[in-house]
Design a protein around this nucleic acid. Structure first.
Lengths: 209, 209
DNA sequence: ACCTGAACACCGTTCAAGT
DNA sequence: ACCTGAACACCGTTCAAGT
């Protein structure tokens, strides 16, 4: 009498994320998904209209975790904004294979919009409004997306290192800076922090004017 | 005796770019490419080892045009940097369907490296060196990629407007700002310029320290 | 040197059918 | 309500063969 529980949407999302993490976005197919869940490949269509919507649900899940993890903060708006940006970048460091569809989606799913609204609230608390508020949002979002894409998208670690080095080596100044993966990771981190400071400074300048 | 000239690599690149512009990246297949050139679908393999390399050649071509168009400048390093960033962003506005593979490639092709090296030269002329030079490059590149992706990637115009509006409407401040496509385009442009100023200011600060 | 034609192993998706 | 099985039109790529 043990009722074999049927799969839920959440099961498919979890399986899809695992496959994408392990084998890349191209590794996610209806058949690979079915295999992992012990189910026929076409069973996904009982839960999602197509694979693209599954991927969007995966994005929503990953971004949702950021939203939950950075919830409350008795801090300045600027500190909260920095925390959200750092947390988002970190989340994609763990799931680099999902960055390409994320860039295409531009955060247009429920939990993404939730974070966008939180950023807007913080920017408003910094004294921005109207057109300047919109411009500030755009600046921060562009930089965040670009940093994520630049730092993690498109390649497994060792490949990335090789590629980054190839580029760096073209200019003498880089050779001593990029000898190891750690150095590259550190440099990426520092550059990201610097950009956040520069852009948030600009936000404050806009608020003051 | 009219010798029918065979196709060259450049022919395939031009055809591929036209198809991508008209029908999106997914519209580019070996068969659609063959049809456009009046040739069998498998003929591409005489010129490129696979489709990914064709797409990389397309990226190289598009970026190469930017490199050629922004060549000389009797200007300050900062003005040259701004010009390169604006020109790159504009080039992708004309070829939005190519942004996703560009993000994955991270500029790792000949003409992309050429531009990267030019940026490095200008940053060095601003007084940056060593680790700060590397960080400055990373900041600018991330912001540029992100702005391009945020402003143009993933959707034809009318779709983009609908999506952007849907998001904007979630916050009261945006409704009056984003009534038309022109307003959105203007806002994107202004936000991009602002971010460039913020990041280049930071570069100067780094150079001065 | 460039292209054709047939073939291969794969895709996403549909739909009738099962429980 | 969820899943199976067969089928469809479509992929990228290989390879022997043509000129």
């Amino acid at each position: 009498m043990s009722t074999r529980t049927a799969h839920t949407r959440a099961d498919y999302v979890a399986a899809a994320l695992a496959i994408i993490d392990e084998h890349g976005l191209a590794g996610l197919t209806t058949r690979s998904l079915g295999d992992r869940l012990g189910v026929h490949g076409t069973a996904v269509y009982r839960h999602f209209p197509n694979l693209d919507e599954l991927v969007e649900a995966v994005l929503n899940e990953v971004i949702g975790r950021i939203a939950d993890a950075t919830e409350p903060a008795d801090d300045t708006p600027r500190a909260r904004l920095t925390a959200i940006m750092v947390a988002t970048r970190r989340a994609f460091a763990e799931h680099p294979n999902i960055i390409v569809p994320f860039v295409s989606s531009r955060g247009m799913f429920p939990r993404g919009l939730e974070i966008t609204n939180r950023v807007l609230t913080d920017l408003a608390a910094m004294g921005l409004s109207g057109r300047e508020l919109a411009e500030a949002l755009q600046m921060l979002e562009s930089y965040l997306i670009g940093s994520i894409a630049f730092d993690y998208a498109g390649a497994p670690d060792h490949l990335e290192i090789r590629r980054v080095r190839r580029r760096m080596l073209a200019h003498e100044a880089f050779d001593p800076l990029t000898r190891s993966a750690e150095q590259i990771g550190e440099l990426n981190e520092a550059a990201f922090a610097l950009g956040c400071i520069a852009l948030l400074d600009m936000c404050e300048r806009l608020a003051a004017s």
